Computed example of a mutant assay.
Amino acid sequence: MHPLAARINHLDLEIVGWFGRHGITLLRLSIGLIFLWFGVLKFFPGVSTAEGLATRTISVLTFGVVPANVSLPVLAAWECLIGLGLLSGRFLRATLFLLFAQMAGTFLPLLFFPAETFKIFPFVPTLEGQYIIKNFVIISAALVVGSTARGGRLITDRKAARVAEEIQAHRS
């Protein structure tokens, strides 16, 4: 192998190794920061751009029983709890359960309020619709984070992958 190619290959292995060692932790922390940030905003009426849509969705879900002055602080606390759970890395399974339940609710405005979430249903979302649809990425990221809840991790090179396969075959 040419010396320059060998150096580039070594650098690539180092970078990919760093991704493998730190990527899931950074993913967990970034999702946690988003939840904490957006949750805190909901404690201040009129500050969160998602406030109106969120409280109207909860009102529809509860048949108007839960008023906005109750639902908004509850949602804020729920999101902050998810954020703190992800940031701390503690109680990860319970935190992810809360996250997935909250995420299920975030998609309901697409059904309940299509005139507000789509310019042209179902292909051209409004800014609010885009805000909701991006949650597919958060769900996928949470699945990756959840894969570590029982000690899972990324394997970043072929040798480690072979060892993992041998261990798996031995367990079977």
Rank of each mutant, 00 (worst) to 15 (best):
I133E: 05
W37I: 00
L33E: 01
L84C: 07
F91P: 06
K119A: 14
Y131S: 15
I138S: 13
P73Y: 04
A142R: 08
K134T: 11
T55W: 01
I155W: 09
I139E: 09
L33N: 08
S71V: 01
V70L: 15
L84I: 12
L81W: 14
A101S: 12
K159Y: 13
L84E: 07
K42A: 03
V40F: 11
E51D: 10
P114W: 09
T148S: 12
R150G: 14
G64P: 14
G52R: 10
I82S: 06
T62N: 06
L127N: 12
I155V: 15
W78H: 09
T117E: 09
R150S: 14
L110K: 04
S140E: 00
V47I: 13
N69Y: 15
R150V: 03
R158A: 14
A160V: 05
G83S: 04
V145K: 10
L75Y: 10
W37C: 00
L110M: 11
I132G: 08
L75K: 01
V47H: 03
I58F: 14
L33K: 05
F107V: 11
R90T: 06
F63L: 15
I133G: 00
N135T: 04
V65K: 10
V65N: 00
P67A: 01
R93I: 15
S140W: 13
G39E: 06
L127K: 12
A94C: 05
K42M: 09
G46T: 06
R93M: 14
T62F: 02
I82K: 09
L86E: 04
S48H: 07
V124R: 04
I133V: 11
G151Y: 06
T126M: 02
T57K: 05
I58P: 10
T148C: 05
A94V: 13
T25I: 12
R153D: 03
G52V: 10
L41M: 13
L84F: 02
T25P: 02
L92V: 10
A54Y: 11
G52W: 06
A50V: 09
I31P: 03
A68V: 00
I120C: 00
W78M: 01
A104L: 15
L84H: 02
R28M: 08
A160S: 15
K119I: 15
V145W: 01
R93F: 11
L110E: 07
G64V: 08
V137F: 13
G85T: 05
L154P: 02
G39Y: 07
R150N: 15
L33P: 05
P114M: 01
G83R: 02
I155D: 10
I31L: 15
Q130E: 14
E128T: 11
K159C: 10
E51Q: 11
G129T: 07
E79H: 02
L92Q: 07
L26K: 00
T49A: 15
S48V: 08
L84K: 01
F43W: 14
R93Q: 13
S88K: 06
L87C: 11
A149N: 05
I58Q: 07
L86R: 02
L127Q: 13
A160L: 12
F107A: 08
N69H: 12
I139Q: 00
N69Q: 14
Q130M: 12
V70C: 00
R158T: 14
V40D: 00
A104T: 12
M103D: 03
G129N: 04
F112V: 04
P114S: 06
T106F: 07
F107C: 08
L36Q: 04
